[in-house]
Design a protein around this nucleic acid. Sequence first.
DNA 1: GGGTGTCCATAGGTAAATCCTATCAAAGTG
DNA 2: CACTTTGATAGGATTTACCTATGGACACCC
Lengths: 305, 305
Amino acid sequence: MDTLDLSFRDLKAVDLVARLQHFGRAAESLGIAQPSLSAQVSKVERALGVTLFERSTRRFLITADGARLLPLLRAALDHHHNLLAAAHPKTLRPAPLQIGLIPTLGAYFAPILLNAAGASRIDITISEEPTAILLSKLQDGELDAALLSIPIRHESIASIPLFDEPFRLLVPQGHDLMRLRPLSPAALDASHMVLLSEGHCLRDQALSICSRRGSPSPRLVATSLETLKYLVAAGEGYTLLPALASHIPRGLRERVELRHFDARCPYRRIGICTRKTLPDRARVNSLAAALRKHTPKDQDLRIIA
Amino acid sequence: MDTLDLSFRDLKAVDLVARLQHFGRAAESLGIAQPSLSAQVSKVERALGVTLFERSTRRFLITADGARLLPLLRAALDHHHNLLAAAHPKTLRPAPLQIGLIPTLGAYFAPILLNAAGASRIDITISEEPTAILLSKLQDGELDAALLSIPIRHESIASIPLFDEPFRLLVPQGHDLMRLRPLSPAALDASHMVLLSEGHCLRDQALSICSRRGSPSPRLVATSLETLKYLVAAGEGYTLLPALASHIPRGLRERVELRHFDARCPYRRIGICTRKTLPDRARVNSLAAALRKHTPKDQDLRIIA
DNA sequence: GGGTGTCCATAGGTAAATCCTATCAAAGTG
DNA sequence: CACTTTGATAGGATTTACCTATGGACACCC
């Protein structure tokens, strides 16, 4: 006879009996048999240690104790109802998907992301962080998804590939590489490059693409691709730009040359990553589908089926 | 998959899991096995149609939906707790027993009733009404018990006999019956009596005790025994007084004579009556026991074991 | 006043939910 | 790569809940 477990149907039964003042009709109204209802009511009475109703064949009475407890019982019932109502799909609009993206996608891909989300009627929030922070926030639940350069080594993260983004070479006017034909990654020398700061995946990718390794100048380091373009324009070296970020600001056009690779064009694969345990993967999947649809076909972007 | 029934243990499980951020420890704390707890939680999630927690082996996350619903869930839980607390014997003092008594016991027996209730630590309320009203209020639940002249014809009413109360004869000075020896009910003539108004059981009892029936004067009718004593003192006739009410006010003592019957002394039986369905008959029973103890032994009252 | 109807409780059997132990699968750690 | 941690799954036993059928109490009605 330990603290007996009450369910909301039990309370509902008591409430209805009190309202209708009749076990039989209450049972009928609840769609159960009268003995079952009687059992529920007496279960509540046992749980409370209080007789709520005085049953008799002719007259139905609510005991004084019952009259005092019924409002509390109904309050509990109301709150249960609130809970169910709040959880109802009509009420509980899905929370915005919190999406992060790496800075080298940032401003260049955000419009696409917003269009795709809008078209698929998915509320999103966007934040921009380097990969490591994104992954940590993803795992801490501060983000639901992140647009990253994949693959990702983490076991608990699932990636949906979206597209391959080719790299372009940005060289200063007059540089040897300006005229090299055909242009291939074999011609790249890490020590002649200007790069983003540590922590940007693009930096590591650029380095690993180079045939000649060596270390790039630690003297000149950019924290954004736009700055990087200016460094190249200033003649400090050349760099790789992701295709989506390869627009050259008007003022720089006489001082730099943007070249496409002729062979073995290097690229990075962009994917949307989530925790494997994320409950509504479906939403992420449909966002991914929308992203594929909204990703522009120019710039040699290869969308991954 | 109709609206699934949630119990408070289910909600409690969810609450504790959210608090401890750990299924295993929550299960241990609840004293159940971990798989059982998992089942409870996913039952709640199914009932709400919402995933509350994002489980993984390493990290525990509350979903955005979960964070929004948990306060509501806890509110429902709190109200359930309120209900149980309010029903707890420590909190829920038993409601006062609502007791009615007939006017011919009224002021004469009320002190005894109050003493008995006080001694047995039973809160009571007292009201005075004629028998018919008492019975109706008893059946409507407005009263829990009534002190009546029994037996009572109603099927749904149970009576506990308390004592037999003899009747005395109150005669005006100089009346023939003042000196009749021996005095027995055979000498009574209904048409010479002054009586209480219709509805008082004492009236009917007095009439039925008389050997000569006939109708009493409809001209003189009292609504209280005290008035009746004055009517007798005024020489309007004689009457029967219940022993407990047979005290003669000082001012009347030269004008009336109170006589005991010598043979076949008429009496009425006083009992405490309740609905048979009254939940806590125990309280009425102990009140009855206390009443027997507190009923005075003088006046020839015969207490019924 | 005995038959009749109403109403809730009880009994007994079956279906369903619940709980347990044992085991599995995933993921992080040394 | 073995080991640990954590929650899900599987399978069997127990408990609970529900149904139909029946009983007992009481009021009502000829």
